[in-house]
Each structure stands twice: as structure tokens, then as C-alpha cells.
């Protein structure tokens, strides 16, 4: 009886210490994160106008959520869908690419440190204003628009299609090869994550497999792929978040411009929040689907 009481006391003491450690963050969460979030929810249902006496709020119901879809019939096709579906092509390619590069960089060869430093370089500069500015100048002597790819492969595509390959395959190929710059520049963190994961796989497992006569191909699927699956989950989630919240995402751009250029605060909040919700649901579904196949070596 006394022992249990002491245990209870210890536990409540532990809880108090835990709360003490996170208390600073908790204050910040409530006042500097949840409160603005709540305010964004409030704005979403209001029509706001700035007058001499300050802000005037007017309840408008769901108007802010639907006005854009009603006024601009191309809004969904031009902004929402590209923003939400960007990940369909990008994330799988990014995951495969970064795993491949991580495996290559994990091998022993001359100049490995240099190669690693090179591949992590995008982490330093990526998503920064620098690339955006360079892009708007096309990185070439001729002015180009922001959407031009830095490396395009029209010539290769022509050769492929004249070689008799079906259009679909050529299209997929050009989609990937046009994005090669973006993909390489996007994958910095993912490569680091995979590399740290690869180093955690015990070498003894590969040795055992080799004695049993497994080929490198089998080793990859039976050991590396299984062992690395927790990292794959992290990489997938990170890439998804990155693709949804990137400044170059059409929806994020729209949310930003809607209040900074057009001053529509309510509409920006409403569409931004619903976009976040949609993105969150997609992440949740993909997380649930992937986490089923994840293997944890020591389940703790």
C-alpha cells in the first residue's frame, strides 16, 4: 500500500517535471500558435474591411470558402489541383532517387567526402530566395518565364518518339528528365535521412546473407529495403509536407497573394485552412497506408 502510494507520488512528480520542461513551449503553443490559428478560423467566416475606425467584421457564413470556385471556374484546375497533386509525381521519384543516391554515397570510394558534401549542398541553398531570383532570370542570357525548366530535354524526347516508343512512355520520361534539376535540389535532406538509416543496418546481416548465397539484388530487397522502411516512412512524410508547404506550391502562392496583393483576408484564411485540411488528410491516408509495411527491428 505504502509502496503504491510512493509510486504514485513518484509518477506525479515525474509528470510535474515533464510539464516543467515543456512549459515554455506550451505557453508559446497556446498564445503564439493556437491563438493565431483560431483567429484564422474566425477570419475565415468573416467579411473584413478596413475603415477609419479600424477593422469591421461581418459574418458571411461559408461565402469565403466558395466565392473563388464560383467566380473563377478554372480555379480548381489551375490552382487547387496542381497544388494538391504535385506530390503524385514528385514524392515517389524523390524517394527512389534519394535512396539510390544514399546507397551510392554509402559505398567506399575515393572522394566520398567530397561527393557527400556536394549532394548536401542543396540543403544550404534550396527553397531560398536565391533560386527563385535566378529562376526569374532564367539563368541564361535570354529572359524566360518562371515556369521554364532549367534543364529541358526536348531533343531527347524527339529522338525517343521517332524511335517508335509510345507517347505515354516518352511523356513520363520527359516529365522526369525535365524535373531532374528540381528533384536533385529537393532531395538533400532525404539523402541525409537515408544515409543515416543505412549506417544503422548491421553489417553482419549482409555477411550472413552472402554466406547463404544471396545476390546483391536479393540483399537489397530482403535486408536494405526492409531495414530502411522506418526511414522511408519519415522520408515520405517529409517530402509530402515539403511539397505541400513549399513556397512554389500554387495554392500557397495563391493564399499569400490573396491578402498581400488583393487584400482579401477572409478568403485567404478560408482557402488556406481548407487547403491545409485537405493536405493533412492526404498525409494521414498515405501515412496509414505506408506504416502498415514498416518493419521495426526492436519494437520498443
Amino acid at each position: 500500500m505504502a509502496g503504491r502510494r510512493r509510486k504514485n507520488k513518484m509518477r506525479s512528480r515525474e509528470a510535474a517535471t515533464g510539464y516543467a520542461f515543456i512549459s515554455i513551449w506550451l505557453i508559446g503553443l497556446i498564445f503564439l500558435f493556437l491563438r493565431p490559428l483560431g483567429m484564422a478560423f474566425y477570419y475565415a467566416f468573416q467579411e473584413m474591411s478596413i475603415t477609419a475606425e479600424g477593422m469591421i467584421y461581418e459574418f458571411t457564413g461559408l461565402e469565403n470558402f466558395i466565392y473563388k470556385f464560383r467566380d473563377d471556374i478554372y480555379f480548381f484546375d489551375s490552382t487547387v489541383w496542381p497544388g494538391l497533386s504535385k506530390f503524385v509525381i514528385e514524392v515517389p521519384i524523390c524517394v527512389i532517387f534519394s535512396l539510390f543516391i544514399a546507397i551510392v554515397l554509402n559505398q567506399k570510394f575515393k572522394g566520398r567526402t567530397f561527393a557527400r558534401a556536394l549532394f548536401f549542398l542543396p540543403v544550404i541553398i534550396t527553397s531560398g530566395i536565391a533560386i527563385q531570383v535566378l529562376r526569374s532570370y532564367g539563368l541564361d542570357t535570354s529572359m524566360e518565364t518562371e515556369n521554364t525548366y532549367l534543364f529541358s530535354s526536348n531533343g531527347v524526347a524527339q529522338i525517343l518518339s521517332s524511335a517508335g516508343l509510345p507517347y505515354v512512355i516518352v511523356d513520363i520520361f520527359t516529365q522526369i528528365s525535365n524535373r531532374i534539376f528540381d528533384i536533385v535540389w529537393m532531395s538533400g535532406i532525404q539523402i541525409i535521412l537515408y544515409l543515416s538509416g543505412l549506417q544503422g543496418i548491421p553489417a553482419s546481416e549482409y555477411e550472413a546473407a552472402q554466406i547463404e548465397g544471396a545476390t546483391a539484388w536479393e540483399c537489397f530487397w530482403k535486408i536494405t529495403w526492409v531495414r530502411i522502411s522506418p526511414i522511408t516512412l519519415v522520408v515520405v512524410v517529409y517530402s509530402l509536407i515539403d511539397s505541400f508547404t513549399n513556397v512554389s506550391n500554387t495554392m500557397i502562392k495563391f493564399v499569400y497573394e490573396e491578402y498581400s496583393l488583393r487584400g482579401n483576408l477572409g478568403g485567404s484564411s478560408a482557402l488556406g485552412l481548407s487547403y491545409c485540411l485537405a493536405a493533412f488528410l492526404i498525409i494521414l491516408v498515405i501515412y496509414a497506408l505506408t506504416s502498415k509495411h514498416v518493419f521495426y527491428a526492436n519494437d520498443n
Binding site: R35, M39, T245, G272
Partner: peptide, 17 residues
């Protein structure tokens, strides 16, 4: 959640704050 929510969404209320 603080990682997932992009700054662009809550940053207008934060600005007012």
C-alpha cells in the same frame, strides 16, 4: 501540427498579434 501548418496560413493573424 506546428510543422505541417505552413506559415502563410497563420501568419496574417500572427502579424496582427
Amino acid at each position: 501540427l506546428t510543422i505541417i501548418i505552413p506559415t502563410q496560413v497563420i501568419f496574417l493573424p500572427s502579424f496582427v498579434q
